[in-house]
Design a binder for these strands. Sequence first.
DNA 1: TTAATCGTTCGTTAAAATAGAACGTAACTA
DNA 2: TAGTTACGTTCTATTTTAACGAACGATTAA
Lengths: 294, 294
Amino acid sequence: MSRLNYHHLYYFWRVAKHGNLTATAQQLAISQSALSAQINQLEHSIGQPLFTREGRTLVLTELGQTVLNYAEDIFQRGEELQQLLKQGTLALPSLKIGVLSSMSRNFIDTFIQPLMQQNDVHFQLIARPQPELQELLAQHQLDIILTNHELPSNDEIAWQSQLLARQPVSVIAPQPLAHLPTQIDASYREQRWVVPSYASPLRATFESFCTQHELAPDIIAEADDMAMLRLLARDSGALAVMPAVVVRDELLSGLLSKRFELPNSFENFYAVTLSRKYQHPLLPSLLQATQHLS
Amino acid sequence: MSRLNYHHLYYFWRVAKHGNLTATAQQLAISQSALSAQINQLEHSIGQPLFTREGRTLVLTELGQTVLNYAEDIFQRGEELQQLLKQGTLALPSLKIGVLSSMSRNFIDTFIQPLMQQNDVHFQLIARPQPELQELLAQHQLDIILTNHELPSNDEIAWQSQLLARQPVSVIAPQPLAHLPTQIDASYREQRWVVPSYASPLRATFESFCTQHELAPDIIAEADDMAMLRLLARDSGALAVMPAVVVRDELLSGLLSKRFELPNSFENFYAVTLSRKYQHPLLPSLLQATQHLS
DNA sequence: TTAATCGTTCGTTAAAATAGAACGTAACTA
DNA sequence: TAGTTACGTTCTATTTTAACGAACGATTAA
């Protein structure tokens, strides 16, 4: 390897971020063949492949992921410089927040509250299922993801999970059932229930709670999406199991009421970032501001 | 400006850091003419000069300094990546510490103590007069400078001064004078003195102290270099005015003794860095470790 | 005044990047 | 299962870019 060719690296960056050579070539206004050749040269000069050709797509190798992380730092800063040179000012880049589709929007609303105060800040919310979120974050298309899955850091990618909040899981009742006691007792035996599906760790907690209190619940509906659970809680007339934050507004308006919390059961909310040298300038303050969103 | 040419920027980086086109061309193993042409192209694509041609040297413009800061971040990280690709590991780059030539070496010794504990750390000490230190730091040839001048940040360069320690200024006596009282009195009137020169802010403090106590000192020698003052204190037989840390070893061995401290007079020691996105990884811990080196 | 140093300019040559066409697979679709 | 589309690779010809070297100009040092 003589000397790193930054133009090759730049092309690699664009392709790796985007995951698609043809489309990237169009963006860059050059031919695929040129792009392909340049990336081959980069791989050749490094001596190892950065992509594996799987089917008709390019997939980053482990080394490729590492190089992408460096490239991101390098060209992120380069783009900043270009903006400075062109416009004379440095607009804060938009903060890209990935959120798990099935998560409570109320929780997210609380998280981004500090951002909404500042009016010079742009941010994007991108709702996706968990695997997609991880892929987008790895490709530096997101700055942060909000999820209830903790992501332990592995060799390939240095995830950084930070626990933002622990929400106790509550039993929520519609108005007709608002008279039920605030502790579990026999009156709960004959009720109908709406619960999270087995996809959620909450379900297991609920099941063990039932076993403990010899409750054989009549489950009429289940869902893994908090927005859906919220609607079921509101409209089904049954008892519902979920973190109270999901139906925050309904609890405030009196439409629903919280009967009690399941003991020792929590839903955890995490902020996951990539540990990089460069980070979005708003991230540190945002993560500090939301140390305890309970 | 179409798109930033990273190879041009790379050449600019090398030249700006080094401050000399011919020598840089040799390092890069290309001709001056090629280098000159590339940098001209960069300036042309930006639309503004990065250097002013003063005499036969290149001097960074204010914009040039800004671009250099970005380039430093970009290529610093690029060099890291290259090292990783070549050697498979990431050796910590050597920490380059600039020190003011006239400062006490004992103080510096204390500062770098934490570095000497770790045996995987390389560092370089570069002693220069103040103006050169500033220039080298601005060119990113140094990571940090240790000095007794505070450098307020200006528009052109974002200096960051951190007060490391305040050393009280003491009157130091050789053994034959060790009997002098630990407060100023008439017995000090007939003594001979060694003092810092007017280049040092200490001198003014000493003068005002003299006025206050109606002391007209018989000054036999002055110096602006602490190492030199130390020798004078040791060998002249006269009283000496300086921070005690300068003659730490001699005080411990009893060769010299501290009589008293000048009231409200301190020498301040600062660590000056450039506020950048990227910093040497050791800097933060080092600056924290030495919060109070008194 | 002379010589050495340093950067620029110019014409020529060498090297690198690019487009375009042909090719090879994989995935979709009907 | 055959036809079609999507995607990446390879090859050659062409264009663009970078490079050298010599000549030049200006500044500093001897």
